[in-house]
Design a binder for these strands. Structure first.
Lengths: 112, 112
DNA sequence: CAGCATCCTCACCGATACTG
DNA sequence: CAGTATCGGTGAGGATGCTG
């Protein structure tokens, strides 16, 4: 998304990966609630549309952060989970998540 | 930017604050190189336009993360620095920055 | 030097409808 | 159930020019 290459610091690169509108929530949900199939994930990310969820998942998958497992059944079943690489990102994200949690009231106040 | 209120996790809120295209770089630069005046900051954030730098700075200031000190001189001088609150965010961002730094090659590879 | 004011573009995202 | 396809609005972001 951000697209200021070459990156001037690691932060740019990281934000580029996780800055999508729903990516943070998706990563957090997958970490928090284990592997989930598409419909379950959709229900746990309130407000997201099918199109956006799929798009964000595909990008996360292309970045190697999310694993997509297809079960050839009827009806179809696809399960999403974090990869090891994705888990390293989740760990790196945790302090930021804590910060946001701790300052949420302030953030909501100053943000239109 | 992200605008999925109410936030489902602290991460959403944090990304909302720091997800702007140049905000991460600005915060990182201000932390790394002490207080800077506008022109200096501009030179240290390659590729940013005046308009965008000002806009991002104003938002960071409104969020209480950046302090703007005006020196009434001719020629004018304005100095930007992190607030204490801003420094807490910088600390929370450090692991993410390290992650991005460590995986930069991989990120650049998979990102169009 | 440090900004503000405009105009404009494009990709981000939402809504809707259809399919294997 | 888990997608794909298409259309269109909107606003972030860029280019340019002017000012205190």
């Amino acid at each position: 998304m951000a697209r200021n290459r070459p990156y001037t610091c690691g932060l740019d690169a990281a934000i580029d990966v996780v800055g999508g509108k729903w990516k943070a929530t998706v990563l957090w949900t997958l970490e928090d609630q284990g592997p989930l199939r598409f419909g379950e994930l959709r229900r746990r990310v309130p407000g997201v549309t099918e199109k956006m969820l799929i798009q964000q998942l595909r990008e996360l998958e292309a970045d190697g952060l999310v694993h997509r497992e297809i079960f050839h059944q009827v009806p179809p079943k696809v399960e999403y989970s974090l990869t090891d690489y994705g888990r390293t990102l989740e760990v790196a994200l945790r302090p930021l998540g804590d910060w946001g949690h701790a300052n949420m009231a302030r953030i909501e106040a100053t943000h239109p």
